[in-house]
Amino acid sequence: MSLRDQLLKAGLVSKKQAQKAEASNRKQEHDSKKNKQLADAIDAEKKAELDKIEEEKNKQKEIDKELNKQRDLLIQQRELIYRARQILNSNCLNSPNATEPYYFAEKNKVRKVLVTSWQREMLARGKLGIGRPMDEVDEFYIVPLSAAKIIKEISPLRLITLHSELDDSEEIEL
């Protein structure tokens, strides 16, 4: 025997009240199922939105990583250019007594730098090289072979001329 029947038998509730309570229970059950479906739909929508936000964050992180890599690469290239310029400046062998012109090619143009006879010989033997610290200025520096090799490694555009090295025992025909 159910609780409803017991309450009806004891006379604590009327038949109408029992039916009303039963209807109320059914309505609550129905609403809870309906709300559960609605709650599930809202939860699914929230989850989809959170997934979308997470995906956008990941995309932005990838974009930021790529931008950081590009920025770091530019900084590294700039540092190498400055280092090459510093090496050129600190190893410059240009002589104020130089009177002989030495002609060389740079980007389909013939350029010249004033050298001494010893520097001309060393340039021809590949013991000296010619570098340019800045593109904007027509100034060329004569540097020793060791500095020229370093410049060639770190910033090849700064080294204009470096002939292949000859043995000191070989003679150059003039």
Rank of each mutant, 00 (worst) to 15 (best):
A84S: 13
A84V: 07
A84F: 05
R85S: 12
R85W: 04
R85N: 14
Q86H: 14
Q86T: 11
Q86A: 10
I87N: 00
I87Q: 02
I87P: 00
I87T: 03
I87H: 01
L88E: 01
L88Q: 01
N89L: 02
N89V: 01
S90Q: 14
S90G: 01
N91C: 11
N91L: 04
C92W: 00
C92I: 02
C92D: 13
L93I: 07
L93W: 04
L93G: 05
N94D: 08
N94Y: 05
S95F: 08
S95L: 10
S95D: 15
S95A: 14
P96A: 08
P96E: 08
P96G: 02
N97T: 13
N97G: 03
N97M: 10
A98W: 00
A98T: 02
A98D: 01
A98C: 02
T99Q: 09
T99I: 10
T99M: 05
E100S: 07
E100I: 07
E100T: 09
P101K: 10
P101T: 03
Y102R: 01
Y102G: 00
Y102Q: 03
Y102W: 15
Y102C: 02
Y102A: 03
Y102L: 00
Y103P: 00
Y103F: 15
Y103H: 12
F104R: 08
F104M: 07
F104H: 06
A105Y: 13
A105N: 15
E106V: 14
E106P: 06
K107R: 14
K107G: 03
K107H: 10
K107N: 13
K107A: 12
N108R: 09
N108W: 04
N108I: 02
K109R: 14
K109C: 15
K109E: 15
V110A: 03
V110W: 01
V110C: 00
V110D: 01
V110Q: 05
V110E: 06
R111V: 04
R111F: 03
R111Y: 03
R111Q: 13
K112D: 05
K112R: 14
K112N: 11
K112W: 04
K112H: 13
K112C: 10
V113A: 04
V113R: 01
V113T: 10
V113C: 05
V113E: 01
L114W: 05
L114Y: 12
L114N: 11
L114Q: 09
L114T: 07
L114I: 04
V115F: 10
V115E: 12
V115T: 12
V115N: 12
T116K: 09
T116A: 10
T116V: 12
S117Y: 03
S117T: 11
S117N: 11
S117Q: 11
W118T: 12
W118Q: 13
W118L: 15
Q119V: 01
Q119F: 02
Q119W: 03
R120P: 00
R120E: 12
R120L: 12
